[in-house]
């Protein structure tokens, strides 16, 4: 089993509902976020193109954050989800430095490092991550890429997609449909 997320950049309207849903679901400290939306504009007026992307930890297949963690607090859980065990984390910041996507932060009150968990607590109960379940345009899909009948596997078979910074070598597992 390998959980991935597929996000349709053509459907996203940049409402940031995913960000708010995550903050509420995961009790994210005030002023912080585990996911965020970027808007990229390329070209020169009037020939401009815009892309909206909901971004978060890519739950990389080759995660440098897990590799550089000295205590094993950052680890790969069931289904390839990359998580941090708070009471094993010393807050050294090695994982933050090693993430090419700047997806992690030090929890301002607790001190340990925190980030997107793919809502593992929901996934274990058979639910979808909070961000996926609230998206009003339904531009996000979550599932097992190893199952050829899953929504995500089908979308990736049919549509054109990209991942962010593949040259970083982390094998990110969030796919953006373009």
């Amino acid at each position: 089993m390998r959980y991935v997320m597929v996000i349709d950049t053509l459907k996203c309207v940049g409402c940031s509902d995913c960000v708010v849903a995550c903050q509420t679901e995961n009790d994210v400290p005030f002023g912080y976020c585990r996911d965020w939306v970027t808007e990229t504009v390329t070209g020169t007026y009037p020939h401009v193109e815009m892309e909206l992307r909901s971004e978060r930890c890519n739950h990389c297949e080759n995660p440098p954050c897990v590799r550089t963690c000295p205590t094993g607090a950052s680890h790969v859980a069931e289904g390839g989800i990359v998580v941090v065990t708070g009471n094993e984390c010393i807050g050294c910041g090695a994982c933050i430095e090693s993430c090419p996507y700047d997806a992690r932060y030090q929890h301002p009150e607790e001190g340990y490092v925190d980030k997107c968990t793919f809502c593992i607590h929901r996934v274990e109960k058979g639910l979808k991550p909070a961000c996926v379940s609230v998206c009003p345009t339904r531009c996000m899909y979550f599932g097992d890429i190893h199952d050829p009948n899953s929504e995500v596997a089908k979308l990736l078979a049919e549509r054109k997609y990209k991942v962010l910074a593949p040259e970083a070598g982390t094998k990110p597992r969030i796919y953006y449909l373009i």
Binding site: C33, G93, Y105
Partner: peptide, 23 residues
């Protein structure tokens, strides 16, 4: 030309706009 901005008001203290974890 490429312009990029965070529209969700991403604010990760000590990471945006510059990473400053190790001092």
């Amino acid at each position: 030309m490429k312009e990029e901005l965070f529209i969700s008001g991403r604010h990760l203290e000590k990471i945006d706009p510059h990473l400053e974890i190790w001092e």
